[in-house]
Simulated assay, not measured.
Amino acid sequence: MAPLTDDTLLITDPALQATLEISKAAREQAQTVVDVFEKALKDAASSPGGAIPAEVLQQISKQQKLLMTYLAQLRGLHRNSHLKLRKTKTQSLESKHQVDSLHLQLQNLYYEQRHLQGEIAACEGFEHTYQSLPLIPVEDFLAQHPELANNEDMDENALMVARINHERAEREALEQQRLELQRRKTKLITENKKRREDLANLDKDLEKFIDAAKPIQKMFEKVA
């Protein structure tokens, strides 16, 4: 049998190191049993009776028991290694599933990131209606609101918001004026309609009065 090499020095797992040590001891013990048995056979062949002495048989039995002890230890270590290997495979499979799940989550995050970047780019390139609002010039606005001209917190965005609010306030005021004028117009139209109806009724009354006075007129004409 070939001797163990120094490659075992690369193994750092305590259980595997113990297995290799017991395996080496079992191999050496098996070789010892073989050597003792061969020597006993040779001695028996050269002796007159050709029998192996009892003390030699006892020594061989002792060496065999020691070998069986090593083999029992090897079987136990092999069983433990097998169980540990199954546990390691299970843990490796679970770790692989976790890595696959994390990788899938990472891909989803990359997809969400690209989607959000596209949405941001679309928002940045979107032409909002406020850009086409007929706002008054900045100089005129600041002239009407000098308190904003010296405001250090008034950046470009804040200034645009203030101008839009100003435009909204002006439009709301104009809308109120328009509604008031519309209300007054409606009232005048109603009053004019009422007056036209009154004049029409008056015309009818005059016509009735004239028709009723015609006989009297004719009577005065005859008297005259």
Results as ranks from 00 to 15, higher is better:
A2Q: 10
T12E: 03
D13C: 10
D13N: 15
P14H: 08
A18Q: 13
T19C: 08
L20E: 02
E21G: 01
K24V: 09
A25Y: 00
E28C: 10
Q29A: 03
Q29H: 03
A30Y: 03
V33S: 03
V33T: 08
V34G: 01
V34L: 10
V34A: 08
F37P: 00
E38G: 04
E38Y: 09
K42R: 14
D43R: 12
A44S: 08
S46V: 12
S46H: 09
S46I: 09
S47L: 01
G50L: 11
A51G: 06
I52V: 15
I52E: 04
A54V: 11
I60T: 01
Q63A: 05
Q64Y: 08
T69Y: 00
A72W: 01
H78W: 01
N80H: 06
H82W: 06
L83E: 07
R86N: 13
T90H: 12
Q91R: 14
S92K: 14
E94A: 15
H97W: 04
V99W: 09
S101Y: 13
Q105T: 10
L106H: 15
Q107A: 10
Q107P: 02
N108L: 12
L109C: 11
Y110F: 13
Y110A: 04
Q113E: 09
R114M: 10
Q117D: 12
G118M: 02
E119P: 12
A122I: 05
F126N: 03
F126M: 03
E127Q: 15
H128Q: 07
Y130P: 00
P137V: 00
E139F: 07
D140V: 12
H145Y: 07
P146N: 02
L148M: 09
L148E: 02
N151R: 12
M154E: 13
M154A: 05
D155A: 05
D155R: 05
E156D: 11
N157M: 12
N157Y: 12
L159Y: 07
L159V: 09
M160R: 15
V161A: 02
V161D: 01
V161E: 01
N165T: 04
N165V: 04
H166Q: 09
R168N: 05
E170K: 10
E175R: 06
E175M: 07
L179P: 01
E180Y: 03
L181S: 10
Q182S: 15
R183L: 02
T186H: 03
I189S: 04
T190P: 00
E191Q: 15
N192V: 14
N192F: 14
R195P: 00
R195N: 05
R195V: 07
R196D: 01
L206Y: 10
K208A: 15
A212R: 14
I216Q: 09
M219A: 10
F220T: 07
F220L: 15
A224E: 15
